[in-house]
Amino acid sequence: MIRKRNLIVYWSLIWLLGSCDTAKKAPENRVQTKRVVAIGLDGISVDGYKTAKHPNLDALMADGVLSLTTRNVMPSVTLPNWTSHLTGSGPEQHGVLSNSWELQKVTLPAIETDEEGYYPSIFKILKEGVPDVKTAFFYNWAELINSFNPRYIDELSFEENDEYQNNYGKAFDFIVNNKSDPTMVFLYSVHTDHAGHNHGWMSPEYITSIEEVDVQIGEFINRLKEEGLYEDTHFMFFTDHGGVPEKGHGGITPQELEVPWAITGPGIKKGQSLKEPNNSVNTATTIAYLFGCGNVPLSWTGEVPMSIFETQEP
């Protein structure tokens, strides 16, 4: 009898191992996106978000789900965290440990890489899994692109000297020109972080930097509405870290590691707060899910916070 039970256990394990794949299976997707616009503002603390006046972001978030307790990865610095947002993984997986990371100066090798040596990003996953998808990456901090393979990005635009207004115009043009195709746009600015470093987190200058970009966000969204491109778009808003007054960031305090994270669009609950635990590594996994990518790399650690949807999966 014991031998028979052992054989049953043995063959059950063989069946389970044989059924494993090299990619994680996502739940069946009932919300298929036309496009995702991911707005990334660097260094937005929860206190900064609560203090600044940003009526346009408020109006956008009223159409969706907002978290003010999303946890970022350690260290609480820029490049490791943006890499985590857009690769569904923490530094222990992608190996980006500091802002000085370069492909030619790797300390901790990524657990998985493509042919050029880059860890798989959301742009790679979409290019390989979504027919005719168009991708764009708009940024104004030069080092930000270092951890992403530009081969999977159709339009790459860098704006110098902390300027970001032209990139908002380019992002709008990119969306209009590709409105018939699935589209993923990452629209980033570092000026808010630099205001914190130069003047202190929660300084008047830091708060003003948030309020100024909110005006640009409002104009951008209004233009999309005029083109009839708002209702079928999923918008995301997220950041890489917060900050401590007079001390910047890089530590392990909640003020540095807990940040705003939000999503709106078709099938997303409206005017809700995200109650379940959330992490920056969930961002790319959620984007892949919205585009109907059934398989994401097994090396990714992110999950989809399913409570954001109006109708959850069974």
Rank of each mutant, 00 (worst) to 15 (best):
R151I: 09
E128F: 09
T113K: 13
N149E: 00
Y118Q: 04
A136V: 04
T113W: 13
S147K: 05
D154Q: 07
K134N: 07
N140V: 02
A142P: 04
Y119T: 04
Y119A: 04
E155W: 13
E159P: 06
E116H: 13
P150D: 08
E128Q: 15
I111A: 14
W141N: 08
F148G: 06
T135E: 11
R151Y: 13
A136C: 08
I125N: 10
L144F: 14
T135D: 07
D154V: 04
N146R: 14
P150S: 08
A142E: 14
L144K: 08
W141V: 07
E116Q: 14
F138S: 11
Y118T: 04
W141I: 04
A136G: 12
P120S: 00
D154R: 06
L156F: 08
I111E: 12
K134P: 03
F158T: 03
F158V: 04
I122P: 06
T113E: 10
K127A: 01
S121Q: 04
T113N: 10
S121D: 01
F158S: 04
P109D: 03
K124R: 14
I153K: 07
I122C: 07
N146F: 13
I145A: 11
T113A: 15
Y119M: 01
K134Y: 02
A110F: 05
K127M: 00
I125Y: 09
E143Y: 15
F123Q: 10
G129P: 00
V133K: 11
V133S: 01
K134A: 00
E128P: 06
P120A: 08
E115C: 02
D132P: 04
Y152T: 07
N146W: 08
F138R: 06
Y152N: 01
F138W: 10
Y152P: 01
R151Q: 14
G129R: 14
I145D: 08
L144I: 15
Y118V: 00
W141Q: 08
P131E: 06
E115F: 12
Y118E: 10
E155G: 09
E128Y: 09
P120K: 10
I122Y: 08
G129C: 11
I122T: 01
A110T: 03
E112L: 11
V133R: 09
E155Q: 14
F148N: 00
V130G: 05
F138K: 09
N149D: 10
D154N: 11
